[in-house]
Write a protein that binds this DNA or RNA. Sequence first.
DNA 1: CCACAATACATGTATATGCATCCATATCGA
DNA 2: TCGATATGGATGCATATACATGTATTGTGG
Lengths: 138, 138
Amino acid sequence: MCGSFRRTSRALTQLYEQALRPLGLRATQLTILQMLSLAGEVSQGQLGEMLTMDSTSLTRTLAIMGRRGWITARRGKDRRERRLRLASAGVTQLRSTLPVWEKVQSRLRRQLGAQAWKNLLQLTHQVTRVVKTEGGSL
Amino acid sequence: MCGSFRRTSRALTQLYEQALRPLGLRATQLTILQMLSLAGEVSQGQLGEMLTMDSTSLTRTLAIMGRRGWITARRGKDRRERRLRLASAGVTQLRSTLPVWEKVQSRLRRQLGAQAWKNLLQLTHQVTRVVKTEGGSL
DNA sequence: CCACAATACATGTATATGCATCCATATCGA
DNA sequence: TCGATATGGATGCATATACATGTATTGTGG
């Protein structure tokens, strides 16, 4: 199952990134822009939790995105935290990226069919949930 | 969809690799061992095709696995090709790894249910196939 | 046979990602 | 309040992964 997911991830990532390449961002970066757009200001740890990603792995990607001016970070009341927000350049980048993303997504959905699409989203979320909640004892 | 798959891949990879860590191999490496075990001798390009992985990405992983003595490579009749096989240490490694892998896998399958499991395998393969065959026009 | 296009990898470069470990800060118990 | 512990990130290190480009080899039309 792990191998199947990893293989499909590679295929999907290539598909999406091929479309995103002219815009100069990677799949992970788009996901982060979308997440911050939805969530507003969050800590690095919270973002990691939302993405099921090691929060220290985010340090590097966030640094790249910070250099490009897409996000800003500031210390929170708890001064260990980095609280992250979209910067205006990030909003702009996201806005110009969404149509491209949407186009790939809708074509793929058409190929797969609405039912398979829906099942996939539901099942992937279920797997993530199960692994996260039962991971220790699995 | 890409984000969902990537997130679930991260979760699954952590789950499987947590179990595999004492054995000193990564998820990708196990997949390659399994593939070579099933396929016998194949070229690097064929292996990349089977895994939906850029064949030049395999160069590094295969080098690591070669250093550990798990695989061997030789030139084919076409001397540009590297034809890959499991070495005996690779067979041994695979044999000692399979029970651990099986254990994680079966527990996860129990948590998800047989039907969801089956649907997932079928759907992920479908997505991979669609992306690979229609990728250019998507 | 030969110049040229195509193929199979190798290598350079960049990002993604996780874990172990370290530092700063916060929290909590005595 | 002070010392022990816990928490949030930063950093070092290793692997995963893709693409662009370079190199060796093969295939091909003339």
